[in-house]
């Protein structure tokens, strides 16, 4: 099957944007800029979903990440000693080990990607409305147990996070 050059171009563009903003997250000293760079990176990933004709997931990714990253930026400002990065604080440790681990992971993944036999790509994909309907049937049919487990997991996490975060009785008055 012949590859679609337009799709490759857009995937490369948004992929490069996602990777570039991913690098910016850990290179900028300002924490708020880090959160915004991560938002752009995740939005580029959402745009890649749209290029791959997964409309529902693409829009979901962009919307979810926009809200998640704005919450993250607020927490950054709350918790950081130096959210603006004005004091040039050192915020990293074991840099060499981290670089080695990241590099090794990338090389191993690259070897699997380039040496693995992926077979021919399927060019036809169901249109957006058909996809969304089929996903709904999948979620409330064959995969219902997994889907419901995900819902229960979120509920448990919400209760757990709230219980961990609230102050023990009387601590705030002390």
């Amino acid at each position: 099957m012949i590859a679609d050059p337009g799709q490759i171009l857009f995937l490369t563009f948004f992929g490069a944007a996602a990777v570039w903003f991913g690098v910016v997250v850990f290179r900028t000293r300002s924490m708020v800029r880090s959160a915004i760079a991560l938002l752009f990176s995740q939005t580029a990933v959402g745009a890649m979903f749209l290029v791959m004709q997964a409309e529902f997931l693409g829009v979901l990714q962009i919307m979810m990440m926009a809200s998640e990253m704005s919450i993250m930026a607020i927490f950054m400002v709350m918790f950081m000693m130096d959210p603006g990065g004005l004091g040039a604080m050192e915020m990293t440790h074991q840099k060499r080990l981290s670089l080695k681990a990241g590099g090794t992971g990338f090389v191993l993944a690259l070897a699997v990607i380039l040496l693995g036999g992926w077979g021919a790509a399927v060019q036809e994909v169901p249109e957006a409305a058909v996809q969304t309907a089929a996903l709904g049937r999948e979620l409330l049919g064959r995969s219902m147990f997994i889907f419901e487990s995900a819902g229960l997991t979120i509920l448990t996490a919400m209760i757990a996070a709230t219980m961990v975060a609230i102050a023990p009785h009387g601590e705030d008055e002390a």
Binding site: G15, V19, G22, V23, M48, G103
Partner: peptide
């Protein structure tokens, strides 16, 4: 691209 994002995330 995903492998590159993964490597940056690990770092």
């Amino acid at each position: 691209m995903a492998a590159a994002l993964f490597a940056i995330g690990i770092y």
